[in-house]
Nucleic acid binder design. Structure first.
Lengths: 349, 349
DNA sequence: CCCCGGCATGGATACGTTTTCATGCATCTC
DNA sequence: GAGATGCATGAAAACGTATCCATGCCGGGG
C-alpha cells in the first residue's frame, strides 16, 4: 500500500516537484505544464498528504470543537452547524466532549495543541483564567453558547495578579470572539410572560456556566428575585434530576420554573411527575431549547428557542474564515414559543 | 510564538535528539539520563508535535467517525460512546456528518485518507461497493449500527464484476468488523408484542439503510407481511414526516406502526396527531431507541432500547485497540420497554 | 591480556510537502 | 542590438519526529 507522492507525479509528468506543488495549489505555471501535471495527477489518483503539508506549514488545518455533551440535543444541533460550516470550507473537525469538566476540557485543549490545531470553537466549561493562556498562545478561540466564567475570587490569585501588575505593564486582555444567544432579552421575555400570568415565585433551574443567564434572570425578575430559587446542576442527567427534584420538593411555594436547557427541562418534567405536580395547573414550565420533542410531551412545552445550529455555524465561520479575522462577537435572537406548559397562577390553595 | 521542539530539549539536557525521543517514547536509556531529560522536558513544557511524529510514521493517530446526523439522539449517544473510548486510549477523533448521503460520505472518507487517518468507525450510508475499496486500501473500518447495503443489482456493474472475476482469481472479501444491535430478536420481540395485542396490519416506518431491519420485520411477521406497509424515508425530519404522514393517510387499515428510529417515531407521533389518530386507541406505536423523552411524551412510548452508547464504545474499541485486531463482529442485545403507546387492537369499527 | 557482547548514545536519514532562491529563456524597451 | 524585465522552472532547504546504524564504553569470559 504505497502512497502516491508528489515526487511520483513529478517524475511521471517529467517536471520538478516544485512545479507540481505550484500547479496543485494554484500557483503560476504554463498552461501546457499545468494540464499535463493535472492529467498525470488524476491518472495516478494522487492525493496530497496533509501530513507533509501540515508539517511544512507548522500548522494543521481543521477545527477543534469542544462541548459538554453530544447527548444534549442542543449541542448536537450546534455541532451540526459547526460541521456544516467546516465542510463548506473543506476543513476537518476534531470533536471532544468534556462532560462539563474543566479538567477534561484542559486535556482536550492539550490534545489540540499537540496536533497543532490552532482554531477551536468551544462551549467552555473551564474558567476564563484557563482560557486566556490558550488564546494568548495563538490559538484562535471562538466561544459558542456561553462564556467562561471568572474563577471565584481567590485572594491568593488576586495577590498574584497585583504583583504581576506591578512588574509589567498590564497585558491587554485577549479578545475572544463569541456567538451567543441573547440571554438577556430571551430571559426577560420568558420572565415577563410568567409574571404576566401572575407568577411571583419563579425558579431558575440552570446548569454550570449559566452565570449570564442567572444574571439575566435576576435582572428580569427585579424585586421578585430570590436567590434561593436559583439552582444549578452539573452537566449530567442525574445531576439535573437531583437538582430539579430538590428544588420542587423544598420549595413548594413556587409556581413556575425556567429550565435553562433541554436536559434540565426533562429533569423538571420528570421530577414534577414524580411529585404529582400537574403541568400547567400546579406548575408552569418554560424550557430553554426548542427541541423536537417539546411539541410531543405532555403537556407540550413552552420554550425559549435558540438557533442552536446557527450558533454553531456562525462560530465556526468566525474561527475558520480569515476575512472575519477581526470579527466581533455575535448575539443571536431567541424566540418564545408558547405551547401548553404555562398557565395563570391559580389562586392560593 | 516559537514552539519548543525536541531539539531544544536535547540541547538543554545536553544529549542528542535521538536520546530524547527514546526517553519520551519509552525506549532504553540510563536512569540518570532519563531523569534529566524528563526534568528538562517538563521544565520547558515540551509537547511533542504530532505533526512531526505523524509524518515520520506515515500515519496519523486518531479515529474518524462518520455518521448521518448528530441531531439524532441515537447517533449523539453513539458518538459519545466513541469519544469516551477514544479518550480512554488518548486518541483524537475527527467527526463527519454525512446527512445520509453517500456522496458526502465518500468525500469525508477522502478527507480522512488525505489526513492519513486509517481507522474509522462508520454508520455507513454508502453502498458496500463504495466501502470495499477503502477497506482494501488498508483503512481499518468498523461499521456501527448498520451494515452498508449492496448496490441495487445493476446489470452493467454485474457485467464488470464478471469480467474481473474472469481475469483474476476472486478476491477474498474484506472482513469489516461491525457492532450492531440484534435487530432480528429486537424486531421479533416488538412484532410478537404487537401481534399478541391482536394487531394484524402492522407497518414498518424505516429509514435508508434499514434493509436488515426490514428483513427482520418481514421474517417476524411471517404471513402477515405486506410490503406495501413498509415505508422508508431519507435521513431528515422532513422526509420522515412525509413518509409517516403518507403511510398513515393512505393505509387507514393499519393499526400498529414500528418506527425504526427516534426521528421516525417523532414523525409518526406528529403525523398521527395531525390526522387525529389517538395513541394508543387508534394506533399502536413501537419506536426504536429509548430516548429520554420517550417517557415524557403523550402517551409515553413503548420502545425498543438499543445500547447506543455501548455500540459506539465497542466499535471504537474494535477500531483502536490493536489487540482486538482479529476481532469479529459484535451483536448487542436490545430490550423492549413497554410504556403506554400500544393497546389491544380495538374491534373493527 | 584480549576479545567479544551488550548497552547507552548521537549523527544522520527519511517522511511529503511548501517555499525560497537561483537559473534560464523569451520578450520588451531604449 | 544590448540591457532590462518578466515568467516558468527546478534544486534545495526546512518543518519535527522516529529510527537505523555506527561509535564508544563497560564488564565478563576465555
Amino acid at each position: 500500500m504505497q502512497r502516491v507522492t508528489i515526487k511520483d507525479v513529478a517524475e511521471a509528468a517529467g517536471v520538478g516537484v516544485a512545479t507540481v506543488s505550484r500547479v496543485l495549489s494554484g500557483g503560476s505555471a504554463s498552461p501546457e505544464t499545468r494540464e499535463r501535471v493535472l492529467a498525470v495527477a488524476a491518472q495516478l489518483d494522487y492525493r496530497p498528504s496533509a501530513l507533509g503539508r501540515n508539517l511544512r506549514q507548522r500548522r494543521t488545518g481543521g477545527l477543534g470543537l469542544l462541548l459538554p455533551d453530544l447527548t444534549d440535543a442542543f449541542y448536537g444541533a450546534l455541532a451540526e452547524g459547526v460541521l456544516a460550516c467546516a465542510r463548506a470550507v473543506g476543513e476537518p473537525v476534531q470533536v471532544g466532549s468534556t462532560g462539563g469538566d474543566p479538567e477534561q476540557e484542559a486535556e482536550l485543549v492539550g490534545a489540540l495543541l499537540e496536533q497543532s490545531i490552532d482554531r477551536v470553537v468551544a462551549v467552555p466549561s473551564g474558567s476564563q483564567e484557563s482560557w486566556t493562556p490558550v488564546a494568548r498562545a495563538g490559538m484562535r478561540v471562538v466561544f459558542a453558547d456561553r462564556l467562561p466564567e471568572a474563577a471565584e475570587a481567590d485572594t491568593e490569585s488576586l495577590g498574584d495578579l497585583e504583583v504581576l501588575d506591578g512588574l509589567r505593564p498590564p497585558r491587554r486582555p485577549v479578545e475572544v470572539p463569541s456567538v451567543l444567544a441573547d440571554d438577556r432579552t430571551g430571559m426577560r421575555t420568558a420572565v415577563r410572560y410568567l409574571t404576566g400570568l401572575g407568577h411571583r415565585r419563579i425558579a431558575y433551574l440552570g446548569g454550570a456556566g449559566h452565570a449570564r443567564r442567572v444574571a439575566a434572570f435576576g435582572e428580569a425578575l427585579g424585586p421578585l428575585f430570590d436567590d434561593e430559587l436559583v439552582v444549578l446542576a452539573e452537566t449530567s442527567r442525574d445531576s439535573a434530576y437531583a437538582a430539579a427534584a430538590g428544588l420542587l420538593q423544598s420549595r413548594t411555594d413556587l409556581t413556575a420554573v425556567v429550565a435553562g436547557g433541554n436536559l434540565l427541562g426533562e429533569a423538571a418534567l420528570l421530577a414534577a411527575r414524580e411529585l404529582d405536580l400537574r403541568l400547567p395547573k400546579d406548575l408552569s414550565l418554560v424550557m430553554y431549547d426548542d427541541v423536537p420533542w417539546a411539541e410531543l410531551s405532555a403537556p407540550p412545552l413552552t420554550v425559549i428557542a435558540q438557533p442552536a445550529r446557527e450558533i454553531g455555524y456562525r462560530a465556526a465561520e468566525l474561527a475558520l474564515r480569515p476575512d472575519l479575522r477581526r470579527a466581533r462577537s455575535v448575539l443571536l435572537p431567541t424566540e418564545l414559543v408558547v405551547r401548553g406548559s404555562c398557565a395563570p397562577r391559580r389562586s392560593q390553595g
